[in-house]
């Protein structure tokens, strides 16, 4: 494998990691602040992608679609939080898993009812369609945009949490929920806000990825499971852990998918090597997670819990 190809795959890994970070940061924030395990996060990702594809289709503007995707997911997040999620904060994890599993079924079928079962396609503006040269590598502009968006979101989240008043409340909420309630912060509004931020990030991720693949029902589920792997590796509740975990998973998964099939070609037929290699590459990140958890049962950066 040439150096240029390795670099290109490394960039792909970073781009994938950035997308995972958008999902994982919301999940980990929601878990850190409210102690909620939200399986329906992947559905918010899907809702974002559908709204983005729909609005882009009507207005012809991808940028408007992107905004609508994030906003649509946030609004859906608020609706879901107020109707269902709110009742789950005091419940045990089993109830949370089940109720949010039920939400996956409802949101998936609901989306199929509203938008139909056919996949939608998202067109990106022609400005983003080309490629640029980065040294020896020619790389698509659109994927670079995703990386930039991810870096901006990471920076924004950092500033929001460490520099603003609402961020202070979020940090306080992670440490001691009763106390900040007693100090006069409206907990339930804070929780809805955090949930909406998480949902908006998921919607943004879905909208961005929607242009790379088809927008269809069930698209959120593989991503959801990977995002869970990310936050478990990073330590549930830690945004820093989510960032590092996302990069780790993104790069290991992408490189594994390229390297393993060519590795198996040494002693197998090409077609068999391709299928065995790619299936084993899918196992790689779970192996990574098992090893990390066997050594550090609370992840790399355990948040205080």
């Amino acid at each position: 494998m040439t150096l240029a190809l390795t670099l290109e795959q490394l960039l792909n890994g970073i781009q994938f990691g950035v997308m995972l970070f958008l999902m994982a940061s919301g999940l980990t924030l929601i878990f850190g602040v409210m102690g909620l395990i939200n399986l329906a996060h992947g559905s918010l990702y899907m809702v974002g992608a559908f709204v983005c594809a729909y609005v882009t289709g009507i207005t012809g503007s991808f940028w408007l679609g992107l905004l609508a995707g994030a906003l649509g997911a946030a609004i859906m997040g608020v609706i879901v939080e107020v109707l269902v999620i709110r009742r789950l904060y005091q419940r045990d994890h089993l109830d949370q898993v089940l109720a949010t599993f039920a939400l996956i079924l409802i949101l998936s079928e609901g989306t199929a009812l509203v938008f139909g079962s056919q996949p939608l396609w998202l067109d990106i503006p022609s400005v983003l369609k080309g490629s640029i040269e980065l040294g020896s590598v020619v790389y698509p502009v659109y994927r670079i945009l995703i990386i930039i968006v991810g870096v901006l979101v990471a920076l924004g989240l950092y500033l929001l949490i460490s520099r603003t008043r609402i961020g202070m409340k979020i940090r306080a909420g992670e440490n001691d929920r009763e106390m900040i309630g007693a100090l006069g912060v409206n907990i339930s509004v804070l929780y809805t806000f955090v949930f909406a931020v998480g949902a908006a990030l998921a919607g943004l991720a879905g909208s961005l990825v929607g242009a790379l693949q088809s927008v269809e029902v069930g698209m959120g589920e593989p991503v959801l499971i990977l995002a869970f792997v990310v936050i478990v590796i990073g330590g549930i509740g830690s945004i820093k852990g989510a960032l590092i975990g996302a990069m780790l998973v993104g790069i290991v998964d992408t490189l594994g998918r390229v390297l393993l099939p060519s590795f198996f070609q040494w002693f197998m037929e090409p077609s068999a090597a391709a299928s065995v290699g790619s299936a084993l590459a899918s196992m790689l990140i779970y192996l990574l997670m098992a090893i990390i958890l066997a050594i550090k049962p609370k992840g790399l950066f355990p948040a205080n819990d």
């Binding site: 878990f31 869970f228 196992m283 779970y286 997670m289 049962p297």
Partner: peptide, 14 residues
């Protein structure tokens, strides 16, 4: 807790 839920999920995915 959540870690157990997630790691059993991860092994099953493997």
């Amino acid at each position: 807790g959540v870690y157990f839920i997630m790691i059993t999920l991860a092994f099953a995915q493997m």
